[in-house]
Design a protein around this nucleic acid. Structure first.
Length: 351
DNA sequence: GCCATTTGACCGCC
DNA sequence: GGCGGTCAAATGGC
């Protein structure tokens, strides 16, 4: 766990630090007679770094607490009745209630040239359980549920459908929230104690290696995607049910300041509401992060959100891989510390 | 042998 | 009855 936290934190910090350095480099180039191409390249790299960093943040799910959802669709009854536990003996008892459009939708754009059948993984382990041709749509819709549904009773599901208009866009509809261990830890290195991981000896190790390999590949794929990532988030009001809230534990130290400062330096924080850097209040020592605001970092991601409650906290994982990025446990950020009294316009910070 | 995916069938809602 | 969501047998990969 500790290892995972350090790893994820380091990765995040590396990206942000790289972004900072690149920004400085760009600044230097601005004062020099370097070519616009050079500047452009630097800009791209900066965006790249921050997109990675943001993805890491997003991917951690920010599932901090689990509270019963008011949503009709994932009411324990509906799913439970159709869960394997209740199935089996009498199929007629299976309750296949059509779900209403609760949950939220994200549109994920992948880079051109990518041949993935579906959008990136979002750090969760999904298992496909169905596919349907949808009326009025050329592309079938895939139905996925959390791999840990059986082992941990995780009720999260998602639907993935390629957009007719733009094949590079996948519409991903999330439903339910992850209650699995992975959702909490989001650490690939700490593989949830599932049936696989309980397997003994070489077999489990082999499995883990396969998983790691898979994640490694996913990461590579993801990084090839990020430039064209587009996320459209809807129904954020429902997200509250699923990712009820995220609080960034903050204490007073410099590292967090660096993160924020770095964002500020790149005019990223310009769009942040006070909620993000919220008073980090002396009382709570927490600040919350709105998915909307995270999305409005202006990092080249075209993010559209509904005008839903901006106080909702972090968005669900946007896209979709078992990338090691998922290794980052957001809880690791509690090691990041933020000095509420830090002056962001401190010119000396970026020396 | 285990697990994930595919795919036809089933079921409930509209 | 049409459609969307889910189930579960069949299948294939590792």
């Amino acid at each position: 766990m500790e290892k995972t936290m350090d790893c994820g934190q380091n990765t995040l910090l590396n990206e942000l630090t790289q972004g900072k350095e690149l920004t400085n480099l760009l600044r230097m180039h601005l004062h020099s007679s370097s070519s616009p191409e050079t500047r452009q390249a630097l800009l791209e790299k900066i965006l790249c770094s921050y997109e990675k960093a943001l993805s890491m943040l997003n991917w951690n799910g920010f599932v901090v607490e689990t509270k019963p959802t008011g949503s009709t669709l994932e009411s324990p009854g509906s799913i439970a009745n159709s869960s394997p536990g209740s199935e089996g003996s009498d199929k007629k008892d299976v309750f296949k209630k059509r779900k209403t459009s609760s949950g939220w939708t994200e549109q994920v754009r992948v880079c051109s040239g990518t041949s993935l059948e579906g959008p990136l993984d979002d750090g969760y382990c999904w298992r496909k359980y169905g596919q349907k041709d949808i009326l009025g749509s050329n592309c079938p819709r895939g139905y996925y549920r959390c791999t840990h549904r059986h082992s941990q009773g995780c009720l999260a599901t998602k639907q993935v459908q390629r957009s007719d208009e733009d094949p590079t866009i996948f519409e991903v509809k999330y439903r339910g929230r992850h209650t699995c261990k992975q959702a909490s830890h989001f650490a690939a290195t700490s593989v949830p104690v599932t049936r696989e991981s309980k397997l003994k000896g070489n077999h489990s190790r082999q499995k883990q290696q396969q998983l790691e390999e898979k994640q490694k590949q996913s990461q590579e794929v993801f990084f090839s995607f990020e430039a064209g990532l587009k996320v459209k988030t809807e129904d954020l009001d429902n997200k509250e049910d699923i990712f009820p809230s995220f609080h960034f534990p903050v204490e007073s130290e410099v590292e967090n300041s660096m993160v924020i400062k770095t964002l500020m330096e790149n005019d990223i924080m310009g769009n942040l509401s006070p909620a993000f850097i919220s008073p980090a209040t002396s009382e709570s020592n927490y600040f919350s992060v709105s998915p909307c605001h995270m999305g409005s970092f202006g990092l080249g991601q075209n993010v559209q959100t509904s005008d839903s409650d901006l106080t909702d906290i972090i968005s669900a994982p946007t896209s979709v891989t078992n990338s090691p990025i998922g290794d980052l446990d957001i809880s690791s950020l509690d090691k990041l510390e933020f000095d509420p009294s830090f002056l962001f316009d401190n010119p000396e910070f970026f020396s």
